[in-house]
Design a protein around this nucleic acid. Structure first.
Lengths: 172, 172
DNA sequence: TATTGTTATACTCTATAACTATA
DNA sequence: TATAGTTATAGAGTATAACAATA
């Protein structure tokens, strides 16, 4: 995925969200026009690109923002708990936490009651970073709202979360 | 991503779509609960998992279905055109087309007018496969509709495509 | 000079198996 | 035996640079 900030939006595009418009004739997306999954995939890619551009200055990616936010709101959870909450396999979670710890944004603390596990907390620099991240995320959210309109936006969250329940269970 | 068919749905889960419920206290997703991008990300993962399970029997992945559908509806397009329409870089498109050609689902035909490019067409076995794929996709779509309700479903496509326009331009 | 298809390459994300140290 | 964290590894997906053939 591109991580250099690009100017948002180009010329208006068709229902299938094509690249530009085909030189000769427009491309027919056929059945893809009636697949919500395809539209959601394209929307998710677009949201990630906007997120990347906005957060590039702080070198934070979407998954890192979600991890930091869960730790901020639930200090002391174990790696397994945070990974499970975010649908990340614990085996892949290790390197992610390593990176955040190396940047001194979070800290692993031993748990006396269970010496196998670590409790996760924001480190001081993580605490000072979070307000900036949430501010950037708010601006990012405003750009989405601008595209849908406020009324429509308010109606989207519920059905989209319902669709997320198609998944058996996230993570491991 | 898991590709073995799993039973869909488990017990109802909270707004943040947690793994199960935390053993002790429920996990607080904080600001993530107000990020549409996070919900869309989880929905997209869930849709892909359901798609994978449903299409595993035919060994077709989401990107392959989209490629085949575009070629079916626009026979004779070049690789660059199809890749551009789907937001796939032409450099990554080569291996995808190779795989579909090796399975005799599509064919590259030389273009006399421009000997640099290939025109893409469905091969005979690709043509017989498409109705089965669209039937599976219809069932997949019905599962999504069942989760949102038909009225809500009908309202989702438009704003979701609007959000997709956040992207600068897809592919290369 | 520019474009089409291509190779090589690298980095991220995601998945499984197997290990260790604890419980 | 089971669990928390870990390592190693492999496969997709996606990104860039550079090339040959052709325009």
């Amino acid at each position: 995925m591109s991580n250099r900030p690009k100017p948002l939006r180009g010329p208006a595009r068709g229902v299938g969200i094509p690249a530009e418009s085909a030189p000769g004739a427009a491309i027919n997306y056929g059945q893809l026009n009636h697949r919500l999954g395809y539209a959601i995939r394209r929307a998710q890619i677009a949201i990630f690109q906007d997120f990347f551009s906005a957060f590039a200055v702080l070198k934070i990616r979407p998954a890192q923002y979600s991890i930091l936010t869960v730790i901020e709101n639930n200090p002391g959870l174990s790696q397994t708990q945070v990974a499970g909450a975010l649908g990340i396999k614990k085996t892949n979670f290790v390197a992610m936490i390593d990176a955040l710890e190396k940047r001194a944004l979070i800290a692993r603390r031993p748990v006396p009651q269970d010496r196998r596990s670590y409790a996760l907390f924001l480190a001081p620099s993580g605490m000072t970073l979070m307000p900036k991240l949430h501010a950037l995320a708010d601006e990012h959210e405003q750009r989405i709202i601008a595209l849908t309109g406020a009324q429509t936006y308010a109606l989207l969250a519920e059905p989209i979360r319902a669709i997320a329940r198609l998944a058996p269970e996230p993570g491991e």
